[in-house]
């Protein structure tokens, strides 16, 4: 059974609506990426250096990143040798297989770590404008629908209008928001959030923080303090520290993950705004270079467009044109 068939079968066992979300969200990326690769593999009839070089460019063009691309193509070379592959067309499913290896590496860590018998605290961090507050709103919506009691803590006390933005979300979905005045100490807000969540017997506390560039030492120290406060006030917390990354971001995403990781021990990634054009390659680079699981992906503007990351769904949506073409042939 070819790898494409395996993928298809795996996806068929999953929820139809989720598959649809992945397909719509990634349709533009898939179109650009796959048509470039198909074109390359059908244009050439030999597997040679030129082909590898062009493939490198396509991967880099999809934000897979230079290092990951080079490693990926290296893996491909090894497999081509080992399996004695001659036809460029056979590279299609091989490529998706090699990517799948990388994506599956952190699979067991992929789910949100929920505390089954008590309060779960999730801290959201990231640079400015990646969509932390929006992600929190969407996630709160999801938990609420699952029947959980959710509280939000408005830890972004810096950006103008950030507290109001979270409050608007709170009103829309009907959950409490713990807030202080603009400009107050974020650690104090989170402290109050934890205590309010405990006394109101909430299941989940989602903590917003202000966006900060990872090279601003003072702001990173502030974040460490917030993290310390959470650790101190609620043993075992934060259960997840999620770094929110904008899928439009290029190589700096890796720097962000590394720096935030050092500061507050990031446990997973939320990749937002994945529904663009040349995006998604970052997912591969993050898994490959940082060994951090991508836990959630934002595939659109609607509240239920925030989905658990699923590598089979992701690859299926990315390569679906090829998968369908293969089926048509056989």
């Amino acid at each position: 059974m070819s790898f494409f068939q395996k993928l298809k079968e795996s996806v068929q066992q999953k929820t139809e609506t989720v598959t649809q979300k992945f397909m719509t969200g990634l349709s533009k990326t898939s179109h650009n990426f796959v048509s470039a690769i198909s074109d390359l593999f059908s244009r050439t009839n030999r597997i040679d250096e030129d082909l590898y070089e062009e493939l490198e460019e396509i991967l880099i063009g999809a934000d897979v990143g230079v290092k990951t691309t080079i490693d990926l193509v290296e893996r491909l070379r090894e497999e081509v040798k080992a399996r004695k592959i001659k036809e460029p067309a056979e590279l299609k499913s091989l490529l998706s297989e090699v990517i799948s290896e990388i994506l599956k590496r952190n699979e067991q860590e992929q789910h949100l770590r929920l505390n089954e018998d008590g309060l779960t605290v999730i801290l959201f961090v990231g640079v400015n404008g990646v969509g932390k507050t929006t992600t929190i709103g969407k996630l709160a919506h999801r938990f609420k629908n699952e029947g959980k009691k959710v509280i939000l803590a408005a830890g972004d006390t810096f950006r103008a209008g950030a507290i109001e933005q979270l409050e608007t979300w709170g009103q829309r979905i009907g959950v409490d928001v713990i807030r202080h005045q603009a400009g107050s100490d974020p650690a104090a807000v989170i402290y109050d959030g934890i205590h309010a969540a405990r006394s109101r017997k909430a299941d989940i506390l989602l903590c917003d923080t202000a966006g900060r560039l990872q090279n601003k030492v003072n702001l990173m120290e502030e974040l460490k303090k917030v993290h310390r406060v959470v650790q101190r006030e609620s043993p075992g917390a934060p259960h997840d520290v999620l770094l929110v990354l904008d899928a439009t971001t290029g190589q700096n995403a890796l720097v962000q993950a590394r720096q935030f990781g050092q500061a507050v021990n990031v446990s997973g990634i939320v990749l937002t705004k994945l529904d663009g054009t040349a995006k998604g390659g970052m997912v591969i680079a993050i898994n490959h270079e940082l060994n951090l699981p991508v836990k959630l992906v934002g595939l659109g503007e609607k509240a239920d467009d925030l989905q658990d990351f699923d590598s089979d769904q992701f690859l299926h949506a990315l390569f679906r044109d090829m998968i369908e073409a293969e089926e048509g042939n056989s």
Binding site: A62, D63, V127, T249, G250, Q251, N252, T277, A278
Partner: peptide
Amino acid sequence: DAMTGQDAVNVAESFNQQLGLTGVVLTK
């Protein structure tokens, strides 16, 4: 956003085609 990756090209091209940009502000 100065951190934008490869997609910057598509974004800029498409905004430019549809609106006729006169300039760019590079942030962060």
